[in-house]
Simulated assay, not measured.
Amino acid sequence: MAISDLALPAGVRTHELGNAEQLAERLALDVAQALRDAIAERGTATLVVSGGRSPIAFFEYLSGLDLPWSQVVVSLADERWVPVNHATSNEGLVRRHLLRGPAAEARFVSLYQVANSLEQAAELADQALAKLPPIDVLVLGMGDDGHTASLFPGSPNLVQALQPDGTRRCLPMHAPSEPRQRLTLTLPVLASARLPLLAIQGQAKLATLNEALGLDDVTRMPVRAFVNAPLAIYWCP
Protein backbone atom coordinates (compact mmCIF):
# COMPACT_ATOMS: atom_id res chain seq x y z
CA MET A 1 0.00 0.00 0.00
CA ALA A 2 1.12 3.55 -0.78
CA ILE A 3 -0.29 6.74 0.66
CA SER A 4 -1.82 7.50 -2.72
CA ASP A 5 -4.05 4.44 -2.24
CA LEU A 6 -5.90 5.97 0.71
CA ALA A 7 -9.38 7.39 0.19
CA LEU A 8 -8.59 10.74 1.77
CA PRO A 9 -11.05 13.62 2.10
CA ALA A 10 -10.83 16.37 -0.50
CA GLY A 11 -8.15 18.93 0.22
CA VAL A 12 -5.88 16.62 2.25
CA ARG A 13 -2.42 16.71 0.67
CA THR A 14 0.18 13.94 0.78
CA HIS A 15 3.96 13.72 0.49
CA GLU A 16 5.57 10.31 0.02
CA LEU A 17 9.28 10.22 0.84
CA GLY A 18 11.82 7.46 0.29
CA ASN A 19 12.99 7.01 3.87
CA ALA A 20 12.89 8.49 7.36
CA GLU A 21 15.82 10.84 6.73
CA GLN A 22 14.18 12.30 3.63
CA LEU A 23 10.91 12.69 5.53
CA ALA A 24 12.59 14.58 8.38
CA GLU A 25 14.39 16.88 5.95
CA ARG A 26 11.34 17.64 3.79
CA LEU A 27 9.15 18.20 6.84
CA ALA A 28 11.71 20.56 8.39
CA LEU A 29 12.11 22.57 5.19
CA ASP A 30 8.35 22.94 4.76
CA VAL A 31 7.81 23.88 8.41
CA ALA A 32 10.61 26.45 8.25
CA GLN A 33 9.10 28.07 5.17
CA ALA A 34 5.66 28.22 6.78
CA LEU A 35 7.18 29.87 9.85
CA ARG A 36 9.02 32.41 7.68
CA ASP A 37 5.77 33.19 5.85
CA ALA A 38 3.93 33.69 9.14
CA ILE A 39 6.64 36.00 10.46
CA ALA A 40 6.60 38.01 7.26
CA GLU A 41 2.82 38.40 7.50
CA ARG A 42 2.27 38.80 11.24
CA GLY A 43 5.66 39.41 12.85
CA THR A 44 5.68 36.18 14.85
CA ALA A 45 5.09 32.48 14.24
CA THR A 46 3.83 29.71 16.52
CA LEU A 47 4.92 26.09 16.14
CA VAL A 48 3.30 23.26 18.09
CA VAL A 49 5.01 19.88 17.91
CA SER A 50 4.55 16.36 19.25
CA GLY A 51 6.98 14.34 21.34
CA GLY A 52 8.20 10.77 21.18
CA ARG A 53 11.16 9.28 19.34
CA SER A 54 9.97 9.75 15.77
CA PRO A 55 10.37 13.57 15.57
CA ILE A 56 13.99 13.69 16.78
CA ALA A 57 15.56 13.80 13.30
CA PHE A 58 13.02 16.44 12.24
CA PHE A 59 13.80 18.54 15.33
CA GLU A 60 17.53 18.38 14.71
CA TYR A 61 17.22 19.29 11.06
CA LEU A 62 14.85 22.17 11.79
CA SER A 63 17.10 23.55 14.53
CA GLY A 64 19.88 24.03 11.98
CA LEU A 65 17.81 26.02 9.49
CA ASP A 66 18.07 29.76 9.11
CA LEU A 67 15.10 31.33 10.86
CA PRO A 68 14.53 34.46 12.99
CA TRP A 69 14.08 32.18 15.98
CA SER A 70 13.52 35.04 18.43
CA GLN A 71 10.20 35.63 16.64
CA VAL A 72 9.08 32.00 17.00
CA VAL A 73 6.96 30.58 19.82
CA VAL A 74 7.16 26.81 20.37
CA SER A 75 4.87 24.57 22.39
CA LEU A 76 3.67 20.97 22.57
CA ALA A 77 0.56 19.15 21.45
CA ASP A 78 0.85 16.97 24.54
CA GLU A 79 3.08 16.20 27.48
CA ARG A 80 3.83 13.46 29.99
CA TRP A 81 3.22 14.68 33.55
CA VAL A 82 6.83 14.24 34.61
CA PRO A 83 9.53 16.80 35.48
CA VAL A 84 11.37 18.33 32.52
CA ASN A 85 14.56 16.49 33.45
CA HIS A 86 12.77 13.12 33.32
CA ALA A 87 13.80 10.83 30.45
CA THR A 88 10.25 10.72 29.04
CA SER A 89 9.53 14.47 29.14
CA ASN A 90 8.47 15.86 25.79
CA GLU A 91 9.66 19.31 26.81
CA GLY A 92 13.06 17.87 27.69
CA LEU A 93 13.17 16.20 24.26
CA VAL A 94 12.35 19.45 22.48
CA ARG A 95 14.92 21.39 24.48
CA ARG A 96 17.66 18.84 23.72
CA HIS A 97 16.98 18.37 20.01
CA LEU A 98 15.20 21.49 18.73
CA LEU A 99 15.80 24.46 21.03
CA ARG A 100 19.57 24.45 20.65
CA GLY A 101 22.02 26.78 18.92
CA PRO A 102 20.23 29.71 17.26
CA ALA A 103 16.88 27.95 17.82
CA ALA A 104 17.35 28.40 21.58
CA GLU A 105 16.18 31.98 21.04
CA ALA A 106 12.62 30.76 20.46
CA ARG A 107 10.13 31.26 23.30
CA PHE A 108 8.79 28.02 24.75
CA VAL A 109 5.34 27.67 26.33
CA SER A 110 5.42 24.73 28.71
CA LEU A 111 2.58 22.32 29.42
CA TYR A 112 4.21 20.67 32.43
CA GLN A 113 3.12 22.21 35.70
CA VAL A 114 4.05 21.35 39.28
CA ALA A 115 0.78 20.51 41.02
CA ASN A 116 -0.80 18.22 43.59
CA SER A 117 -2.70 16.23 40.97
CA LEU A 118 -2.86 15.66 37.23
CA GLU A 119 -6.20 17.47 37.13
CA GLN A 120 -4.73 20.54 38.82
CA ALA A 121 -1.73 20.44 36.48
CA ALA A 122 -4.09 20.43 33.49
CA GLU A 123 -5.93 23.46 34.86
CA LEU A 124 -2.64 25.32 35.30
CA ALA A 125 -1.54 24.34 31.80
CA ASP A 126 -4.88 25.55 30.47
CA GLN A 127 -4.17 28.96 32.03
CA ALA A 128 -0.63 29.04 30.61
CA LEU A 129 -1.95 28.26 27.14
CA ALA A 130 -4.04 31.43 27.24
CA LYS A 131 -0.76 33.18 26.34
CA LEU A 132 -0.10 30.92 23.36
CA PRO A 133 -0.58 32.86 20.10
CA PRO A 134 -2.69 31.30 17.34
CA ILE A 135 -0.97 28.19 15.97
CA ASP A 136 0.67 28.67 12.58
CA VAL A 137 2.13 25.17 12.19
CA LEU A 138 1.08 21.99 14.00
CA VAL A 139 3.08 18.78 13.62
CA LEU A 140 1.29 15.65 14.78
CA GLY A 141 2.27 12.01 14.94
CA MET A 142 0.09 8.92 15.31
CA GLY A 143 0.25 5.77 17.41
CA ASP A 144 -0.61 2.24 16.34
CA ASP A 145 -3.94 2.58 18.18
CA GLY A 146 -4.89 5.66 16.18
CA HIS A 147 -4.15 8.18 18.94
CA THR A 148 -2.60 11.54 18.20
CA ALA A 149 -1.28 14.07 20.71
CA SER A 150 -2.37 12.35 23.96
CA LEU A 151 -5.89 11.73 22.72
CA PHE A 152 -6.02 8.02 23.58
CA PRO A 153 -8.96 5.71 22.82
CA GLY A 154 -10.71 4.86 26.06
CA SER A 155 -9.24 7.70 28.13
CA PRO A 156 -11.86 9.10 30.55
CA ASN A 157 -11.72 12.67 29.21
CA LEU A 158 -11.53 11.78 25.52
CA VAL A 159 -15.09 12.71 24.59
CA GLN A 160 -14.70 16.11 26.23
CA ALA A 161 -11.32 16.66 24.56
CA LEU A 162 -12.80 15.92 21.12
CA GLN A 163 -15.75 18.31 21.46
CA PRO A 164 -15.38 20.80 18.57
CA ASP A 165 -16.95 23.56 20.67
CA GLY A 166 -15.20 22.71 23.95
CA THR A 167 -13.80 25.58 26.01
CA ARG A 168 -10.86 23.81 27.64
CA ARG A 169 -7.44 24.21 26.02
CA CYS A 170 -5.81 21.38 27.97
CA LEU A 171 -7.17 18.27 29.66
CA PRO A 172 -5.69 15.42 31.70
CA MET A 173 -5.39 12.12 29.87
CA HIS A 174 -4.43 8.57 30.79
CA ALA A 175 -2.29 6.61 28.35
CA PRO A 176 -2.23 2.80 28.07
CA SER A 177 1.57 2.88 28.46
CA GLU A 178 3.91 4.43 31.01
CA PRO A 179 3.98 7.16 32.04
CA ARG A 180 0.19 7.01 32.03
CA GLN A 181 -0.50 10.51 33.30
CA ARG A 182 -0.56 12.92 30.35
CA LEU A 183 -1.67 16.42 29.38
CA THR A 184 -3.09 17.12 25.96
CA LEU A 185 -4.28 20.05 23.93
CA THR A 186 -7.91 19.63 22.96
CA LEU A 187 -9.43 19.35 19.50
CA PRO A 188 -10.54 23.02 19.23
CA VAL A 189 -6.99 24.24 19.91
CA LEU A 190 -5.27 21.71 17.65
CA ALA A 191 -7.80 22.11 14.86
CA SER A 192 -7.28 25.89 14.85
CA ALA A 193 -3.77 25.51 13.35
CA ARG A 194 -3.32 27.31 10.06
CA LEU A 195 -1.11 24.50 8.74
CA PRO A 196 -1.68 21.07 10.31
CA LEU A 197 0.81 18.35 9.37
CA LEU A 198 0.83 14.62 10.16
CA ALA A 199 4.09 12.65 9.93
CA ILE A 200 4.01 8.83 9.91
CA GLN A 201 6.39 6.06 8.89
CA GLY A 202 5.94 2.46 7.78
CA GLN A 203 3.24 0.22 6.37
CA ALA A 204 1.75 -0.46 9.81
CA LYS A 205 1.05 3.23 10.41
CA LEU A 206 -0.41 3.56 6.92
CA ALA A 207 -2.72 0.62 7.62
CA THR A 208 -3.77 2.26 10.91
CA LEU A 209 -4.58 5.50 9.12
CA ASN A 210 -6.52 3.60 6.47
CA GLU A 211 -8.56 1.91 9.21
CA ALA A 212 -9.24 5.26 10.89
CA LEU A 213 -10.57 6.69 7.65
CA GLY A 214 -13.33 4.10 7.66
CA LEU A 215 -14.66 5.12 11.08
CA ASP A 216 -17.48 7.52 11.88
CA ASP A 217 -16.79 7.46 15.62
CA VAL A 218 -13.60 9.51 16.12
CA THR A 219 -13.26 8.34 19.73
CA ARG A 220 -12.26 4.89 18.45
CA MET A 221 -9.23 6.28 16.60
CA PRO A 222 -8.91 10.00 17.44
CA VAL A 223 -6.54 10.79 14.57
CA ARG A 224 -9.62 10.60 12.36
CA ALA A 225 -10.78 13.95 13.76
CA PHE A 226 -7.79 15.63 12.12
CA VAL A 227 -7.79 14.02 8.68
CA ASN A 228 -9.53 16.87 6.91
CA ALA A 229 -8.41 19.78 4.74
CA PRO A 230 -6.01 21.56 5.02
CA LEU A 231 -4.03 18.66 6.57
CA ALA A 232 -0.85 17.55 4.81
CA ILE A 233 0.43 14.00 5.48
CA TYR A 234 4.11 13.09 5.24
CA TRP A 235 4.82 9.37 4.91
CA CYS A 236 7.71 7.06 4.12
CA PRO A 237 7.75 3.24 3.93
Rank of each mutant, 00 (worst) to 15 (best):
F108Y: 15
V139W: 01
W81F: 07
D144L: 11
R168G: 07
S75F: 03
I3S: 08
Q71A: 14
V73S: 04
L111W: 01
L183Y: 04
D37P: 00
A122H: 00
L138S: 14
L47G: 03
P164S: 02
G214C: 07
E123D: 15
L111S: 12
L29T: 14
V73P: 00
V159W: 06
A191I: 07
A32T: 12
V31T: 15
L206R: 12
T167R: 14
F152S: 08
E25W: 05
V49G: 00
R100P: 00
I233Y: 08
F152G: 12
R96N: 14
L190E: 05
L35Q: 05
A193Y: 01
A207W: 03
S4M: 03
P237W: 00
G202A: 05
R168L: 09
A125Q: 00
L6A: 12
A229V: 11
K131I: 04
T186E: 04
Y61A: 02
V218C: 07
L213G: 14
I233E: 06
C236P: 04
D217Q: 13
L99A: 05
D5H: 13
S192W: 01
R13G: 08
P102M: 08
A121I: 02
N19W: 00
N19D: 15
A24V: 02
V82H: 05
V74F: 06
R80T: 09
L62S: 07
G64K: 13
P230R: 13
E41V: 12
